[in-house]
Amino acid sequence: MAKCSICGKPAVVDLRYARRRFCAEHFIEFVERKIERSIKEYKMIGKRDRVIAAISGGKDSATLAGVLDRLRDRIGFELILLHIDLGISEYSRKSREASVRLAHRLGLELVIFDVKEMLGYSIPEMALRLRRRACSVCGIVKRYVMNAAGIELGADSVATGHNADDIGSYALKEFLFQNLENIGKLVPVSESIDNLAVRKIKPLYTVYEKESFLYSLLRELPYYHEECPHARLDSLDFTIKEFLNKLEEKFPSIKIQYVKMLARKGSNYPKIVEARSCRHCGLLSLGGECSFCRITRRLRKSPAGPMVRRYFSTLRNHS
């Protein structure tokens, strides 16, 4: 029988890249230590910081919130959870339920931004009216809401649950299309830009997707493990992830070496020129009007950025 490399009890996880096997207890400890090391090495969180963890309700969110919750006393930071309800039928309803259960389990404050309630349209409705792909609209809305929440709630950083597989596959995709400016954004910490953009951190940077799933499962954290109905298994993103996993099977640890090199060299990639302020909402924009204000202006006749900022600012004043 395979035994835990630490205590000799029966192993439940075999990590080939680390050449170690773990029982449940020591696997949980291994993941937490790995995330704590990343937080320290990349200077993600400081003492007395206010951190917003953006959670979707999936396994990575559960791992992110679960680990940050255990580290918050040790490092000494404040943690708030943010869930964005995208209005994607049953998928969003169950994701929201999982997020509420997760916050309740961990005893953490949860802020919910309901896209349909706030903007008048769900993500699929917006995509239909704008004649754009749901995933592209979803990305614009999520990035904006996270940034606005971070700025208005006075956060030092917004943490997302991107794991090593996500980061590796995004970087490879951007490389294939030679969008080198986008690779530079895939570093563990994207620094804030005064009053325009909140600092963004990726604590699961060196955690494999499989490890994230096992961590949530073994800690019995609430999560909803279904694919978004708009995601496609034959998409380029998914195929790249599968390709990286094939490499990993043949060359164990290639994924972790890859993301660690990216963390080190990512800042060498070209940067997007100058940051400007959106003329409607005042947050980050590349051309004078941010993508969020542009799409909501087309949908609702007036840009929704200022209203979203007010929503979070009111929450802050009431807390």
Partner: peptide
């Protein structure tokens, strides 16, 4: 219902599940 290492023996009457952990696409 519990994760196992690959060397684990399986019997015909045991409940075996493979869960895809990859997401996004």
């Amino acid at each position: 219902g519990k994760p196992v290492v690959e060397s684990r023996r399986v019997k015909d009457d045991e409940e075996v599940v493979l869960v895809r952990v990859l997401s996004g696409g």
